[in-house]
């Protein structure tokens, strides 16, 4: 097929297929983290997801090798997050991080390993969208508890573990897991796809 820089219909269908896989992995990560770390699931969700979906991301980047693929994936992910009952912020987060990740990957011409890894880390932060409400809705929790006649200091104690500290923890954890997941993905792609001559 002639190489163009624009996305063709087969490219778009490929993106759709990989986005579906990515979405399934996100769902698995959501249930997995809710099951393994009840109460803290929102903190570990982006990290967990980054850990397992490196392969999908790396294969998509290796297959397309052109600008737009990662952005479109981010946008479609955002749309599906919204329709599956997530926050409107998750929409914005996925789009912005998708485009940023795409730009970073483009700088390495979609070939540089480090560039792809960096772009994967950035893309993983797109998943912070669905998580942010946890910090954002804290006020609503507190207001509700006050309305139900709970003591203010008692409420403060309850929410001691939802603060900037956990936010930083989530950011760092995601960074580490995205690096690991991205490396694992690159290793797997090399082992299974490059040797088989698919990409």
């Amino acid at each position: 097929m002639k190489a163009t820089n624009k996305l063709t219909i087969p490219d778009l269908i490929t993106i759709g297929v990989f986005t579906a896989l990515y979405f399934v992995l996100v769902t698995i990560a959501t249930f997995g983290s809710a099951f393994l770390f009840p109460g803290f699931n929102n903190v570990v969700l982006p990290a967990f997801c980054a850990l397992i979906s490196g392969c999908v991301y790396m294969l998509l980047a290796a297959k397309l090798q052109k600008f737009g693929g990662i952005s479109v994936m981010g946008i479609v992910m955002g749309l599906f997050f919204m329709t599956s009952g997530h926050f409107i912020i998750s929409f914005a987060g996925n789009i912005v991080m998708g485009i940023v990740a795409d730009l970073v990957a483009k700088m390495g011409n979609y070939k540089s390993k480090k560039g792809l890894l960096a772009s994967y880390v950035l893309f993983s932060y797109g998943l912070f969208g669905p998580v942010i409400p946890m910090w954002f809705m804290k006020d609503a929790y507190v207001a509700n508890l006050e309305a139900r006649g709970k003591d203010a200091t008692y409420i403060a104690e309850l929410f001691a573990n939802i603060n900037m500290g956990t936010f930083v923890l989530a950011v760092v954890l995601t960074l580490i897991c995205a690096l690991l997941g991205g490396l694992f993905g690159q290793k797997m792609i090399k082992k299974h796809f490059v040797k088989a001559g698919i990409v």
Partner: peptide, 10 residues
């Protein structure tokens, strides 16, 4: 169209 096609594929 570049958003619709991936959406439908998903």
């Amino acid at each position: 169209e570049c958003i619709i096609i991936p959406c439908v594929t998903v």
